[in-house]
Write a protein that binds this DNA or RNA. Sequence first.
DNA 1: CTCCTAATCAACCAGTTGGTTGAACAGGAG
DNA 2: CTCCTGTTCAACCAACTGGTTGATTAGGAG
Lengths: 121, 121
Amino acid sequence: MTDQLSRVFAALADPTRRDIVARLSAGDATVGELAAPYDVSVQAVSKHLKVLSDAGLVSQTKDAQRRPCHLEAEVFDLMTKWIERYRRQAEERFSRLDAVLAAMDDDQPNRTRPRAQGAAS
Amino acid sequence: MTDQLSRVFAALADPTRRDIVARLSAGDATVGELAAPYDVSVQAVSKHLKVLSDAGLVSQTKDAQRRPCHLEAEVFDLMTKWIERYRRQAEERFSRLDAVLAAMDDDQPNRTRPRAQGAAS
DNA sequence: CTCCTAATCAACCAGTTGGTTGAACAGGAG
DNA sequence: CTCCTGTTCAACCAACTGGTTGATTAGGAG
C-alpha cells in the first residue's frame, strides 16, 4: 500500500481517526488533548496520529514537550478528484443509456433492451 | 468497523479495488472479465468484489452463471459529504485566522506574529 | 445424463493493524 | 541537579486482510 491515495483512504477508514480529523478541523490540538476523550491509551492515539501524518492529513510541530497537530486540508483534494472522476463518468454513462433507451422506444417500442454494457472501454 | 463510511473508505484503500471501481465506471462487467487483467486468482477478485459490495459500492445481478457487477455511484456522496464538511470547516478557520492577522497588522504593525501555523497551505 | 464454465465457499498462511504495557527521551519547574 | 509532564519507542498479542489452493454449487451445451 505504497501510494498516498491508498494511505489517505486507509487512514480515514477508522472512526477514531475520522473523529480526530473532525476535531482538528475546528482547530489545532496537542496529542494529549486529542487523546483525552477516548478511553484508549495516549500511545494508541499517538499511533493514530502517525497514520494520519504518514497519509499527509496531519502535520505536527514542536512546542516545548508538546506536539501540536494541524490538519492539512489540501490532501482532501486528492480524494475528491479521484471520486469525482469516476462518479462523473458513471453518471454520464447513465444519461447516455437513458438517451439510447429513449431513442429505441421512439424507434421500435417493442424491442428487447440490450444489457447496459456497451459503454465499456 | 461496523459503519458504512468506514467500510467505504476501507474498500477504496486498496489499489486493485479502486481500479475495479474505475473500470466499472465505464460499464458493467462480470467477475471473470474484471479478474482477467490481474495476475491474481479469480477467487481473490471475487473477495475484492465482496468487500466492495459490502461497502455498497457495487451490486451484482444474475445472468445465467454470470454475476454482472454494477457500480453504485450514490455511495460516493456519503464520502464527499464527510470530506466537504471538514474541509470547509478547516478553510473557514483559515480565513478567520487571516482576518485576525490582518487586523493585528493594522493595529500594531511591529508586533511579533503568532506562529503562522494556521495559514500554512 | 455428462461435461464445461462462472462463481463462490472453506481452510489455510504470512503480513498488517489496533490495542496493550513498560521503558526512554525531551524539556520546563523546583 | 532532580522531578514531573508530554510524547514516542519497543515488544508483544489478538484480530483482520489479501492472497493461495481445493471443493462445491449453479446453469447452459453436447
